[in-house]
């Protein structure tokens, strides 16, 4: 059993976002990078499946060398080895192309990643990878259990959820509560230093380029309504904000 877990390296969800170089680059000063929150759930579930089945976990990142602390963290949490495709992850198709190339080479039974990255929130990489490999893909998966070659899943749908049965190999986009995030222990951190991390070049070329970034217009002041006159809010929403 071989599991490939794809992780993104993204700014911490509490980060204040700003830009430099005439709004053409993300300002990385003071920004802490983390494993993508959804990818972290995928990794945590993979480690649990490893404990149950003895699976081998390879962690994959498409990104620059500055993502290596996040890759080492994934190794400390329980992945066995790592691959980094040395290129900026510009667009979904391009990233999926890199993942599919690694996946073809490694013959994985299960390819897990987050439902989306928390920077571009597109949520399509898993599906593109599935199509490129000619295997089924599902997202967002909130429960995952293996029974030999058979996979039992719960997927979130609009207004509810559905239970699914499919067979390996599969590509899955994961979200909570598939597993609880794992914190690496000291032994994990020590062994992670010597686990293999292979850096390989990218294939293909990006389909998008970003010209410029911008921030939303600042909000005006909040209009306060005294609690004892709360009903006035409804009037204001009708006549002033015109949303009712």
């Amino acid at each position: 059993m071989k599991i490939l877990v794809c992780i993104s390296s993204v700014p911490d969800t509490t980060s204040k976002i700003s830009f430099t170089d005439g709004d053409t680059k993300l300002n990385k000063a003071g920004v802490t990078y983390i494993i993508g929150p959804y990818d972290d759930y995928a990794l945590a579930r993979a480690v649990e499946l490893k404990e149950q089945t003895g699976a081998i976990i390879t962690v994959l990142n498409v990104g620059g060398a500055d993502a290596e602390p996040q890759i080492r963290k994934a190794l400390a949490i329980g992945a066995d080895d790592a691959i980094r495709v040395d290129v900026e992850p510009t667009d979904s198709y391009f990233v999926a192309e890199q993942i599919a190339a690694v996946a073809k080479e490694g013959n994985y039974d299960l390819i897990l990643m987050g439902r989306e990255t928390s920077d571009y929130n597109s949520g399509v990489v898993h599906g593109i990878v599935g199509e490129m490999l000619g295997i089924p893909s599902f997202s967002p998966v909130m429960q995952l259990d293996l029974n030999g070659n058979e996979v039992n899943m719960t997927r979130e749908i609009e207004g509810g959820k559905e239970k699914l049965i499919a067979s390996l190999p599969l590509v899955l986009g994961c979200q909570e509560p598939i597993a609880e995030w794992k914190i690496p222990n000291m032994r994990g951190i020590m062994t992670a230093r010597t686990k293999p991390l292979k850096v390989i070049p990218a294939a293909g070329s990006a389909l998008t380029t970003t010209e410029k970034y911008s921030l939303p217009a600042p909000k005006g002041a909040c209009k306060m309504i005294p609690a004892e006159e709360a009903e006035k809010l409804i009037e204001l929403l009708k006549t002033e904000a015109k949303v009712l």
């Binding site: 667009d91 571009y120 597109s122 593109i128 199509e131 893909s137 389909l207 998008t208």
Partner: peptide, 14 residues
């Protein structure tokens, strides 16, 4: 996503 994989299409969300 799967259609993009089949068509080699650029996908942009949001």
């Amino acid at each position: 996503a799967r259609a993009a994989g089949a068509l080699k299409a650029a996908v942009v969300g949001n």
